[in-house]
């Protein structure tokens, strides 16, 4: 049996111990979640304009999502699905090819000793400090020149942009990968080499399967970075059908916020979904990587 006074005292103590923490968390959650709540509500609000917003919409519908998949209402003529596809295509390809190139280079750095190895590794570290977008003017003219020679590889092509992304995707990831390879004992491939496998075979059949978790992390980080790129895509892509979601969505909404808010909200949520899902699926590894001070941001 507790007396009323001591019960009150317990609440008081609990409050000082833990309760105020929950209050703080609630306040911060409000700040963090209100934009997400509003955008979800906007996406199911049949009144598409920004001025008609309310948190709990009347007569919620999914018409904005339908419009997304139908390429927007007739008057907008915005091929959202195509843009999403372009973004996904470019990020997944950059992720796959970038990870492959990264793993190959990292394997050489990890397993061979050769002249230029040390300077190569340090050079990689130095190069990746400078964001690729700083050279945007030069990259633009480079693709312009390439386009004179081979139009399918120049400005306004996905292949051209893919090459630019691949160039930017190496850097630190090679270091990350090399560190992982270093932790795999040499004896594992040595035995395969004794059995007559070439270096390349040992790498493909033995090392790569062991490195699967690290390959997945690098793949996903590359996909996220590429998907979120706005500046390079906006410089290098020129036609509506070529745009990525970042470029298309920006042109779609800028200057027309009030009228296009509803459909934009749906597009933003659908566009964020793949990346949020990827991020959350790999949250533990990304958090571990961030704590070591190595990735994104």
């Amino acid at each position: 049996m507790y007396s009323l006074k001591s019960f009150g005292g317990k609440i008081w103590n609990w409050f000082f111990d833990r309760g105020f923490k929950h209050l703080i968390m609630l306040a911060i959650l409000a700040f963090v979640l209100f934009p997400i709540a509003w955008i979800i509500s906007a996406s199911i609000n049949p009144v598409g304009s920004l001025s008609a917003q309310r948190l709990i919409p009347e007569n919620p519908t999914f018409q904005n999502y339908l419009l997304f998949f139908r390429g927007g209402a007739e008057q907008y003529d915005a091929p959202f699905l195509l843009w999403l596809w372009n973004s996904l295509k470019l990020s997944v390809l950059t992720g796959l090819l970038g990870t492959a190139m990264c793993a190959l280079a990292a394997y050489a750095f990890s397993r061979f000793r050769f002249t230029g190895r040390r300077s190569g590794l340090l050079g990689l570290l130095l190069v990746q400090m400078f964001p690729q977008m700083l050279a945007m003017v030069a990259i633009y003219f480079l693709l312009l020149s390439i386009g004179d020679l081979a139009p399918w590889l120049g400005l306004n092509t996905h292949l051209g942009l893919l090459m630019v992304y691949l160039g930017g995707s190496l850097g630190f990831h090679t270091w990350l990968m090399k560190g992982f390879f270093d932790s795999i004992p040499h004896s594992i491939e040595e035995s395969a080499r004794v059995d007559g496998a070439s270096h390349l075979q040992a790498f493909v059949r033995i090392i790569l399967p062991l490195a699967r978790p690290m390959l997945a992390v690098i793949f996903i980080l590359t996909v996220i970075t590429t998907y979120s790129d706005f500046i390079l895509a906006s410089i290098l892509l020129q036609d509506t059908e070529q745009y990525t979601l970042a470029v298309g969505l920006q042109l779609f909404i800028f200057g027309s916020y009030n009228q296009r808010w509803g459909i934009f909200a749906a597009a933003a949520l659908i566009g964020a979904l793949p990346i949020v899902a990827l991020f959350l699926s790999l949250q533990d590894q990304i958090v571990a990587g961030l704590t070591r001070g190595s990735v994104k941001g």
């Binding site: 050279a135 030069a138 990259i139 003219f141 480079l142 090459m163 160039g167 930017g168």
Partner: peptide
């Protein structure tokens, strides 16, 4: 796409 553009 990184080193050459920096020089350029």
């Amino acid at each position: 796409f990184v080193i050459y553009p920096i020089g350029y």
